[in-house]
Structures are given as C-alpha cells and as structure tokens.
Design a protein around this nucleic acid. Structure first.
Lengths: 195, 195
DNA sequence: TACAAAACAATACAGTTGTATTAAAAAGGG
DNA sequence: CCCTTTTTAATACAACTGTATTGTTTTGTA
C-alpha cells in the first residue's frame, strides 16, 4: 500500500512552505521556525528532513529551477512556429502570472542572499544565459534573424533584457503588468526578426 | 576654527562603512556591531548618529543615489553629441569600474532587502525609469531615433536592458567584463539610432 | 503481536541581534 | 579655569537565531 505522502513529497512541501515564507517575509524571515510553522511541522520534524539550513536552501532553490525547466520543456515540444516558440518560452521565465511571479520572487531573494555566502556548496544556477544562446541560435538557424546582426551582442542584449524586465515585473508589478511585459518582449523579438 | 570632521561628515563615513560591510558580508552581515567596527566606532557612538537601524539604512541608501546622481549631472553638463552623452550617462549607472560596481552591489542588496519590509518609511527610489524616459525623449527630440519606433516600448526595453546588464555585470563580473558591457550598451543605442 | 526504524515533538543551549541605560571622556564657549 | 553640551564607551537585556539533545509517537514488517 503506497504512503499517502512519501519522503520526497514531504521535502517538496517543506520547500514550498519556504517559498511562501520568503515571498511574505523575505530571506530574513526564512528561519527554520517560520518555515516549520508554515509547513505545519515542529522544529524536530523539519530537522528530520533537512539536517541543516543550507540543505533546505539548496533543495528549495533546485526545486524552483526544476519546476520552471519542466514547464519550458513542455513548451519546447509544442508544434508552433520558431518565433512564437521563443516568445512562449520567455514567457515561462518572466513573471506574467501568479506562478511565474512567485518563482521569480523566491529566485531573486535566493540570488541576492547566496551571493554573499561562500559556505554554501552546490548552489544551482539558472540556465538563462545558455537558454538565450540557444534562442538566438535557433532563430538564426531558421533564418528568422535580420541580416547584419552581431550574434554575440544580441545574446548579451536579450539576456540582459529578459532578466531586467523580469526584475521590473517583480519589483513593480503595478506599473509593469503582464500585458505590458508580453508586449515588450514581442516588440524586442520582432525587432531582431525579419518581416 | 572648523572641526576636522563635522557631524554630517561622520554620518557619511558611517554610511560608507555600512556599504563596505554589505559588499563583503551581504545584508545579513550588516549588523550595527559590524558596521560600528568597520567604522572604528563603538556601539554607543554609532547610536549617537543614528537612533535606530532604519535611519541608518535609509541614509545609506540615499547617499548612494546622491553620489550617482551627482556624477550623472556632471556628465550631462559636458558638451558632447547627444548619442555619446546618453551612452556616457548610462555608463555612470551600470557597473564598469570599481566605483559603479560597488554602488550597484549595495543598491542591489538594499533593493532585495527593502522589498519585504513595509516598516521602513521614506525608502528612496532610483530614478532610472524616469531617466530612461528622458534619454529616449532626448534622442527623439534631436532626431537621432530611427523612424517607426514605438517610444513607449523603447523606454521599457531600454529600462529593462540597463538594469539587466547592470545586474549581470554585478553578479558575474568575470564573464561580463566592463569592455563587454560598454560594447553591448553602444550596440543597443546604435540599434535604435540612425546612421 | 513484537520490535526496530522512521517520523515527530519538546526543550535546551550558546551565540547574535537591535535597543536601552548609564556613565565616562572630549570639546567648546563663558 | 569652569561648566554645559557633544561625543564616546561599556554593559545589560529581551528576543531571536541555528543546532543539539532527548524523548514520544507512528509506521512498516517479520
């Protein structure tokens, strides 16, 4: 008979509780006690799943990436034109709904926090730069890119643009609503593509 | 006889000490004790200048903006062509040297920290969005912008691009060195300008 | 039913946090 | 010089931090 919730599932629940705490109280509020309370567990119970705080942190970060990457992969499988596909993938990264907004929120908090801590091993990295390289290469290979563009600099520009607009959508969602985010992304992609 | 260092000068020294602590240890390490030690003061001495931590935080944030804005203003006064002037101003914002790198570092830490604290009044805001509006308007007024551009979206795009590349230069200075930052910025501005 | 392992809970502990209190030292004007 | 104000220092305190310890309950299986 299968368990109602197995070990790995519990760890995910705890990580998600950590996300909620981070979104609400920030990294400073992400204490073991707050996370345990949010998860409905005791301190000892949380300790049973994660020996120390770093383990939980790395696990929670990794889980964010896994969720995003799985969504992106499913978009990649869709049978839609290249340009639309690139835009669709970008819209899985940038905050345009509650899910992606939450993801960016915790990821942003993670990134700022982890930057000043060299004692945390195995910190995962978002593959947005590598993804951007692929997107530009993909558009180029399918002949959609305009002539005379500098591919290297186009990658750097798209990379900065995506992370920048993601950051803005996160920090000022009132001004930069999802409709505007989508419009701007489409505008940029169109500006480097033919037609 | 003038004092060697007056009251206001001391506050600036303390704020700069806070910057150094933040750059080294992050926001978590920016405790009153660490800041006092970095400034070469006792706890009580620091308390004499700032009644509480929030006052110090807001003061230190404001000082970052003042430093940057004063540099920007002096660039604006230079008698150089519009396009070069816009690029020169952008290079005062984005990390391309030790000074701007440090500024971005503390500002980034501030921003991520302050986002989850509603109990801090009078949090200053960088005027990068407003500045971006002016730059695009300036280029448009001087007839340097290409035809058929959507000004609103160009503002949004430049705004995201600038903050994004600033963030990348900060988080991964090895890959994105200052030469590459400059090249990319020039590339983007050139892409929206005639000639 | 036994019994060992897994899961959870409660409490304790040392260290750090921001802040408050109290007092000493330094500075400056009369 | 004296005396007030500014500046600095030392210590204390309650709250909170991550972690450790110890004990209890639940679960799976032989």
């Amino acid at each position: 008979m299968p368990k109602i919730v197995d070990h790995e599932e519990r760890k995910k629940r705890i990580a998600e509780a950590m996300w909620r705490v981070i979104l609400d109280k920030g990294m400073e509020g992400a204490t073991v006690r707050n996370i345990a309370e949010e998860a409905g567990l005791s301190l000892g119970a949380l300790r049973h799943y994660f020996q120390n705080q770093n383990d939980l942190l790395v696990y929670a970060m990794t889980l964010v990436l896994e969720r995003a990457n799985s969504r992106i992969e499913s978009v990649m499988k869709r049978d839609i034109p290249p340009k639309e596909k690139v835009i669709a993938v970008l819209l899985e990264i940038v905050p345009v709904n509650a899910e992606t907004l939450a993801e960016m929120g915790v990821w942003f908090a993670f990134t700022a926090y982890v930057k000043h801590r060299k004692d945390i091993p195995n910190v995962p990295e978002d593959g947005i730069f590598e993804g951007t390289q692929k997107f530009i290469g993909y558009l180029h290979a399918t002949g959609l890119l305009k002539e005379g563009l500098d591919l290297e600099l186009e990658i750097e520009r798209l990379y900065a643009f995506i992370d920048g607009i993601a950051m803005h959508a996160l920090l000022d969602p009132q001004r930069l609503d999802s409709e505007r985010v989508i419009k701007t992304i489409e505008y940029h992609i169109n500006s480097i593509c033919v037609e």
